[in-house]
């Protein structure tokens, strides 16, 4: 399986960033990641067995404080895909602690999956590496407009309440998929610098409320281009 990986087996990158997608079963985590890494869509529903991951290398261009573009870095993204099914829950949540950022996904055509976002948030608070990790809320299946059950306003309000960005994506058309991942990557990159630069005034770990209380100011996007090396994903379970 991984013998086909040729261009990505070298250690020629500057950052290894581990992101993780979570959310109810069937919201489209696997297809979302498949769209992001391979720019393809598989409409078939194949349930993820426990855990899986995909990889992609992107070039990240840092932005200086004055707004000018700075150095470029190669970032190796490890995108963990988790099973949404309840029976895998103990396994998948165990992987939360190794991820640096999270794509919390729900299905725009399923009210229930949206209601469960709250539960997933508390799962994250309990298991992630810190109390207020970087999260992006993703409403998937935006292309199925006629079946829509969750309104944008509703979701936006929730995201604002948690102080996290919100995106309506479609793995089928590919809209906003890249943007959601890149936004999360951007948050994580920013977080790394903060963690290193302000070790003394580190406090917010204790109160998770900081995230719930104040919505963050909107961040400037940084440019991220895909690198010329992609691979098909490893195991045959996910499309």
């Amino acid at each position: 399986m991984f013998c086909t990986v040729s261009t990505m087996t070298d250690g020629d990158y500057d950052y290894l960033i581990k992101l993780l997608a979570l959310g109810d079963s069937g919201v489209g985590k696997t297809t979302f990641l498949y769209r992001y890494t391979d720019n393809k869509f598989n409409p078939k529903f194949i349930t993820t067995v426990g855990i899986d991951f995909r990889e992609k290398r992107v070039v990240y261009t840092a932005t200086n404080s004055n707004g000018t573009t700075g150095k470029t870095f190669k970032v190796h993204l490890q995108l963990w895909d988790t099973a949404g099914q309840e029976r895998f829950r103990s396994l998948t949540t165990a992987f939360f602690r190794d991820a640096m950022g999270f794509l919390l996904m729900f299905d725009l055509t399923s009210q229930q999956s949206f209601l469960n976002v709250r539960n997933w948030m508390s799962q994250l608070q309990a298991n992630a590496y810190c109390e207020n990790p970087d999260i992006v809320l993703v409403g998937n299946k935006a292309d199925l407009a006629d079946q829509r059950e969750v309104q944008e306003k509703q979701a936006k309000e929730l995201a604002d309440k948690y102080g996290i960005p919100y995106f309506e994506t479609s793995a089928a058309t590919g809209s906003e998929v890249d943007k959601a991942v890149i936004t999360l990557l951007d948050l994580v990159m920013k977080r790394m610098e903060q963690c290193v630069d302000k070790p003394a005034q580190e406090a917010p770990n204790g109160d998770g409320a900081s995230k719930l209380a104040a919505p963050r100011p909107a961040r400037k996007m940084r440019t991220v281009q895909p690198e010329n090396c992609k691979i098909p994903p490893g195991n045959g379970i996910s499309p």
Partner: peptide
């Protein structure tokens, strides 16, 4: 809690992860 095949596939994923990890350690 997993069935045989499921366990296999999870372990396969973890093996892939291990490859990446060793790459990272080397880096």
């Amino acid at each position: 809690a997993l069935e045989g095949l499921e366990r296999e596939s999870v372990l396969q994923v973890l093996q892939r992860d291990k490859v990446l990890r060793s790459l990272e350690e080397e880096r």
